[in-house]
Design a protein around this nucleic acid. Structure first.
Lengths: 169, 169
DNA sequence: CCCATTGATGTCAGTCACTGACATGACGCT
DNA sequence: AGCGTCATGTCAGTGACTGACATCAATGGG
């Protein structure tokens, strides 16, 4: 993150990253599949899925997804500065946006699997998870632009709004 | 597509593609930003946006999006074989899935812009477009698996289902 | 009809991400 | 001490992608 913030993602070579971290380029590639991957820890997905698994069967799937996302939002709220820096780096490089999107898609897919395990029908599970992620993305964008608002709250609002627009008028 | 189908995307070098097309590697990179881009024509996005722009102001935004997507679905239906081959290549390579996702996100963003031009509020526009794309993705997956069903119809069903699940119960 | 301009293509050399094969060295176990 | 295992280093290679310059055909003005 130091190097990326100073000189940008593209102008930073893996050799530089490795040197700064005190190891070899080859070793870097043993820990990360590629240069982009270093910006995408896997913890978030695991957190969301386990949160979803813990949710009561009594609440509607979309609300369970919402609760998990809001909890994740709370975590991001605590690392606000880091999240902003990271977002700036990603926003400046299309290749990183691609990676972000596939990570989010992977999260949606994992959440959909969890919903199916809870008995939600196939396509309903996918759609519920995708809807949650779409709301999360819109909320996250707003959070980055607006320093005042709380991310969890923005997620809740986006989901409510999604409900309204899909209702069709 | 010939080379990719025969030997896969990764085992096909740009030099091979260029040779098969009767030109130089350097020239290939003047037409396509990178090797992956060759599988993603820009026509789809332009089609969807213009279709959206033509829609009557009387119908709800989500329905205008639905209509545009269904029309695009009809076009894919005509190139069914090619669409399936292309999908198989993309499904086998994560890097191509990334590219596909960012293309869809770009389409969603362009559709959202068009909705805003029609007076839809900021976040509602984003959410409506994202919802449409999410439904399209789910429908497309089903279409690939199920040879019998009609894509346009699957899109319509997915959107209806999305309406149901976001309603929360 | 000639020449200057322009645009598309080719050539070449270079950078950098990423990989496979093998070497080294620390550490725990017996 | 001797052995196996695991993390790391070393080295050479491939292939995507880029910048600089050369070539050549088409075009259009004089």
């Amino acid at each position: 993150m130091e190097l990326f913030s100073e000189q940008g993602f593209e102008r930073t070579t893996v050799a530089e990253i490795a040197r700064r971290a005190g190891l070899t380029e080859r070793t870097f590639f043993r820990y990360f599949a590629d240069k982009r991957e270093v910006l995408f820890p896997s913890a978030l997905q695991e957190f969301l899925v386990s949160r979803l698994a813990d949710a009561s069967d009594a609440i509607a799937p979309i609300d369970a997804v919402a609760a998990a996302l809001e909890a994740a939002g709370g975590m991001l709220e605590e690392r606000r500065d880091y999240a902003r820096k990271r977002h700036a780096v990603i926003a400046a490089h299309p290749g990183l946006q691609e990676r972000e999107l596939i990570k989010l898609a992977s999260i949606a897919s994992a959440m959909a699997d969890e919903l199916r395990r809870r008995g939600v029908a196939d396509s309903a599970a996918s759609l519920t998870a995708e809807a949650g992620i779409a709301a999360f993305r819109v909320a996250f964008d707003r959070w980055i632009k607006d320093n005042e608002r709380d991310l969890s709250q923005l997620i809740r609002e986006s989901l409510d709004e999604l409900k309204t627009v899909t209702a069709g008028k």
